[in-house]
Each structure stands twice: as C-alpha cells, then as structure tokens.
Write a protein that binds this DNA or RNA. Structure first.
Length: 500
RNA sequence: GGCGCUAUGGUGUAACUGGUUAACACGUCGCCCUCUCAAGGCGAAGAGUUCGGGUUCGAGCCCCGAUAGCGCUACCA
C-alpha cells in the first residue's frame, strides 16, 4: 500500500495540501503503507523558488511525516519532477511509437483563437485536432521545418460523435463514473518547452513509484479519464482512485485566498497549533465516527470533547468509507474554538513554552527589535510601538487611514489595488517598494499618502517602525491577510452605512 | 453552454441492514459563577432532512424527475 501527495511549488503551502496530506497519511498509517511526498514542479511559469522549502517546513510543522520525498530520499527517487524529465521523454516516446499520442503543431495563439470561435457559437471549447489527422509525411515535414510542437494524447474515437466510445472508472467513494470520449479533450502531455504536463508526469510517476491508491481532491475527477487512458495506453494496472471533497469558503465556493486565509504559514504565524489544525481538518468530510451511546457510557466519555481527537486517535478511528461527499466549509470560527481548546489543555509550562516558541520566539523578537531600538527611550515603550506584531487583527478608524487630501471612497478604491500589487510581490523590502511605487505613480498617489494608508491598515496607527521592514518581518501571509480583512471590514461598513 | 460531482439547522457532522418527538459539536441568545473579559456550569431558539412525485404499514435513508450549488472545460496543477 503506497500513497502520495504531490504539491506544486507555486506559492505558499496550502491548507488543502495539509488536508489531502492528512488523509493520505491516515490511509498509509492505517494499512501499514508508505506515505510519499513528491514535488510537482513542471510548470516553469508558475514556479516559485522559495516555495518548495516552505512546503517542507509547513508540512513538517503539521507533524505529517513522509516516508519518502525529495529531502529524505527513498528507493523510487528522484521525487522532484524537474529531475525526471528524461523519464517522461522516454515514456512519451513510447506513446508516440504506439500511436497513443501525436505531435501537435498549433501555436498557443491558434488554439486561443479556435477556443474563442467555439465559445462565440456556444460550442464546447475543444481541440479540433488538425495535427491529429496529419499523415506521417505531413508530421515529418512540420517537424523538419523546426516548428515547435506539443505532444497530445490521442483519445480513442475522441473525434467521433458522442456515444461512440467512453471510459468508466471506479471512484472508491462514489462508484462508477463514466465519461464519453466526445467530452475528453486530446490532452497536452508534453509542452513545447519539453516539460510534461501534470497528467503525464503524474501517471508515469504514480506507476513508477508504485502508488496503489490515489487520494486527491475532487477537482481531479474530470481529468481522471485522461489518466485512465494513459494507464491503459502504457498497459499498466490502475491504482484505486479516492476523490475527496473540496474545502470551501463560507459561500461554498472552492476555498481561495480571496475569502479565507489558505496559507499554512499564516496559520502557523498567527498562532494556531498544528494538532488543532489537523484535528479540525479531520472533521472536514466526516470520516471520524462519533462515539456511540454505548461507548460514551462504557468509556465515560465527555460529549463536550466529541470533536476533539489526536492524530493517533484519527489513525485508529478514521473511516474512509464514511466520508461524506458534500464540500465542507472551512469554518475559521470553529477552528479558533478548537485551537483554544488545545491551548487550555496545555499545562502552565507547556503553554509558556508554546508562547516562547511561536509568537514570542527569539527569532521573531530578534527581527523586530532592530526596528524599534532607535525609537525608544525606555524599554516599556516596546509594547506601544510593536503591538501590531503580536495582534490577531487591527482595524483602524476612517480618521486614521484616509489621507488628508483623499476621500473615503477614493481610499477604498485604491486599497484593493495595493493588495493586488502586494500579492504579486516577492517579499523583500526593495521589491515591495518598487512595485508599490510603480502603482502609486500610475494612480497619482503620493508616496506619503500610500505608505500612510498601508501603515494604517497593517499597524492600525499613523506612526510605526519602518513600514516595509515591518511587513517583511510580519510576513507576507499575515500582511496580506490583514489587508484583506481590512477590505472586508470596510465593505461591511459601507453596506451598513448604506442601510441607514 | 457542455460534462461531472454533490445536496440533513448559520457551520461541521450523526442517525445500525428504511422503524416513534432527526442527535452531537461550533456559533447565536439567556441565566449562574465573577472586579472585567474569557473559561466553566445550566438552559433556549434554530432543520422535518433542496423541491416534486413514487415504492412501503412506515423514507433523511430505496426509485424517478426537477432545482440549486460546486468542480472541470489551459502548452496550471
């Protein structure tokens, strides 16, 4: 029994990764299997250099230890897809040789135009497959011309009318799911830059790494037929597929940073305990049977603690067959309650140590201290000066955040633009500075005004230690969260004002 | 639009092979405790199980149909 998680280093480590990680971990521990971590870094355009290390750190923080991975090694390495390109090339060639794949010479522009045309006449966008039907001579000619190409999967009878062919696979939680080949696009397997797409790399690696059970999020159901087709083309046995429900925002949409903190870094820095996080995640989608009445009586259980359980208890009790399929809302309110429950459960010394290793860690204080030293006369001023580093939230009043020569609507129109810029920024003072300055010159905001606004949003005050340095110390995840919360609060205030 | 998945209080879940007044936790509200705020204790409101049919003595659980939400629909994962 072997399972895996396969995050992409495209940004901050995601709570969804921790959720799917937990599920895979439990599955492996319950059945004496191995839990593998594989880094799927095949998208060069979205690659973020610092991301991989953050994924390791964040996952380590949760306590979900993996048996094999890029950093710990293992018998099926390398575990980083960028180091396996030769392997994909080889397997892709096999597909080419056997006719299960073909070279496609359309440019991205042509594909885009085709898609638009199809959308315009309300047709489902689908690759029309000009290259699919090239004669060997035509293909050879295009290749000789040196035209860039991708390699696509030839979906059997995919170009025939609906009802001609279909693929059925078993989802362990839902039963059989069928897709008509008419609705399965000829997926790109190898990009023109020579890197594989997720679909190819994932199937090849899962096979080569001996993965027996693919436990992943529901969003993959639609592409599973492509994966099944690939397994079949290679003549490989299928793994079992378990598609887990997707974590949701309060409005039931797929969980997103716009509406929820999704970075594990945020949760760690904001002072959530990993045990609480895992416990809460274990609640999502059910799986943990509530103790029966008999059990409550015989074991003398406290129903107050019905939702509280350790990782070990989850391993013992979690039942994959009882996972409920509705998308669970990731409810911060209950997570917070649960975290409080864990905090209260600590003895005085452990609680002290928790504070010392999180919000009051030496490393955090060491970063903050140089920002305030020259501004202080007596050390007790530290609290006033640095309070925002230790707060969950600050909400400045309009008198504080609206610059003198600006109006409230002006300011609230500008602030989201700063958020967008900050989201894209590499989190170092110079980078934040330049991207911020680019924005404010474009929008005709003075440096003073813009920085004052940002300062107010992040610190709640008009005076603070140097803003950019403070932001770097405070961290990207929490800084962005603070801006988003500010925006959210202001939106509510506007609605409220409108009602009056 | 097409395809797929899903559907129990505001939220997360329960309800053994269909069997009485749909349970637990979070949240909300009230009371107690208390210098305050929490915590803790006690209590309350809140769903008749998306809707409409059907099968059955009996349906949240089975069948059919509708609706809604979500996901996918990229040389992203």
């Amino acid at each position: 029994m072997r399972v895996r998680i396969a995050p992409s280093p495209t940004g901050d480590p995601h709570v969804g990764t921790a959720y799917i990680g937990l599920l895979n971990y439990l599955f492996a521990k319950q059945r004496g299997g191995k839990f593998v971590l594989r880094i799927e870094d095949t998208d060069r355009t979205r690659f973020v250099a610092s991301s991989e290390q953050m994924i390791f750190d964040a996952l380590r923080w949760t306590g979900l230890d993996w048996d094999e991975g890029p950093d710990v090694g293992g018998p099926f390495g390398p575990y980083r897809q960028s180091e396996r390109t030769e392997i994909y090339r080889e397997y892709c060639q096999r597909l080419l040789d056997s006719g299960h794949a073909y070279r496609a010479f359309e440019t991205p522009e042509e594909l885009e135009a085709e898609r638009k045309a199809q959308m315009a006449v309300k047709q489902p966008p689908k690759y029309s497959g000009a290259s699919r039907n090239y004669t060997p001579e035509q293909a050879a000619a295009a290749l000789a011309e040196g035209k860039p190409f991708t390699i696509r999967l030839r979906v059997p009878d995919g170009d025939r009318p609906a009802g001609t062919a279909s693929t059925t696979f078993r989802d362990e939680l839902r039963g059989d799911i069928t897709f008509d080949h008419f609705n399965v696009d000829d997926q790109v397997l190898m990009k023109s830059d020579g890197f594989p797409t997720y679909h190819l790399a994932n199937v090849v690696d899962d096979h080569l790494m001996g993965i027996t059970d693919v436990i992943r999020a529901e969003e993959w159901i639609s592409s599973t037929p492509k994966h099944v087709l690939l397994y079949q083309a290679f003549g490989w046995d299928l793994p079992r597929f378990w598609h887990m429900p997707l974590l949701r925002n309060i409005d039931k949409s797929k969980i997103s940073k716009r509406k929820n903190p999704v970075s594990l870094i945020y949760y760690r820095q904001a002072g959530y305990l990993p045990q609480a996080m895992l416990n809460f995640l274990g609640l999502m989608g059910g799986g943990m049977a509530q103790p029966s009445e008999q059990e409550i009586v015989s074991k003398g259980l406290d129903m107050k603690l019905a939702d509280i359980f350790s990782l070990q208890e989850m391993i013992e009790r979690f039942d994959f067959n009882r996972i409920s399929l509705g998308g669970p809302v990731f409810d911060l309110v209950k997570l917070k309650w649960m975290n409080g429950e864990y905090l209260r459960g600590l003895n005085a010394e452990a609680f002290f140590q928790t504070l010392r290793s999180t919000i009051f860690s030496d490393s955090y204080l060491r970063e903050i201290v140089p920002l305030v030293q020259t501004r202080m006369e007596i050390t007790s001023q530290f609290g006033d000066m640095a309070d925002f580093f230790f707060k969950d939230d600050v909400q400045p009043a309009a008198e504080v955040f609206v610059p003198k020569k600006r109006t409230l609507p002006d300011t609230l129109a500008f602030a989201p633009e700063m958020l967008t810029v900050l989201e894209a920024a590499d989190w170092q003072t110079e980078n934040i500075d330049t991207s911020l300055r680019a924005l404010l010159t474009a929008k005709e905001w003075s440096v003073k005004e813009a920085f004052m606004l940002l300062r107010a949003i992040l610190t709640g005050k008009t005076a603070s230690p140097p803003l950019l340095e403070s932001m770097v110390v405070f961290g990207k995840a929490r800084s962005l969260d603070r801006v988003r919360r500010f925006l959210e609060a202001q939106k509510k205030a506007v609605v409220l004002a409108g009602r009056k």
